[in-house]
């Protein structure tokens, strides 16, 4: 049997790669095995989980355009390419940074891309608060336009108040 690494020497090291969902046999010569030693060790560390399996399946089906793959999350430093190869995000921010390619993927996994379950109390408070803020800012603009400065000052104070409370949470 030929080594799958260099395609030259005879394969003497036979490994079962269990990290990528399907159980895959890998046949390598000794020097290629040494070269890949670290990777192989980490391969054997964890057996595949169902979500990984599903993610990988989906990976092979939907490919993002090349430029999109180099998008980097400013918060955790992960690239879209890296996410697609591991199936794991680096931080919550990635969901908005990679939004473009992600929705395709999510639709393939879940069939839908709109959350329809529990909402944490804080989030629902914030959604309400944000709506209120938007309304107040529109009011403020209007007041300024109409040169109703006393009313504008009141509105501004309410905005500060709301934003302050938001900062606390």
């Amino acid at each position: 049997m030929q080594c799958e690494g260099c395609q030259k020497n005879a394969a003497t090291v036979h490994l079962t790669d269990v990290s990528n969902n399907t159980k895959k046999e890998i046949h390598l010569c000794e020097s290629c095995a040494k070269l890949q030693g670290v990777t192989i060790k980490s391969y054997l560390h964890k057996s595949p989980t169902y979500p990984e399996l599903l993610t990988q399946l989906v990976h092979s089906q939907s490919e993002a355009p090349a430029d999109e793959k180099d998008v980097v999350c400013p918060r955790c430093g992960i690239t879209y390419r890296k996410f697609r190869s591991t199936g794991k995000f680096g931080c919550p921010n990635d969901y908005s940074v990679f939004k473009k390619g992600l929705f395709n993927l999510l639709e393939k996994i879940h069939g839908k891309v709109e959350h329809k379950g529990k909402v944490p109390l804080r989030a629902s408070d914030q959604i309400v608060k944000q709506k209120e803020l938007r309304a107040l800012r529109a009011d403020l603009e209007k007041a300024v336009r109409e040169e109703a400065y006393e009313r504008a000052a009141q509105i501004r104070d309410r905005i500060y108040g709301l934003e302050g409370r938001q900062g606390e949470v």
Binding site: T55, K88, P92, I109, H115, G117, K118, V119
Partner: peptide, 14 residues
């Protein structure tokens, strides 16, 4: 970690 559109955000998109 929560997004109104996508719900609770997790390590795996699954």
């Amino acid at each position: 970690a929560f997004s109104p559109q996508l719900g609770y955000l997790t390590v795996c998109p699954t």
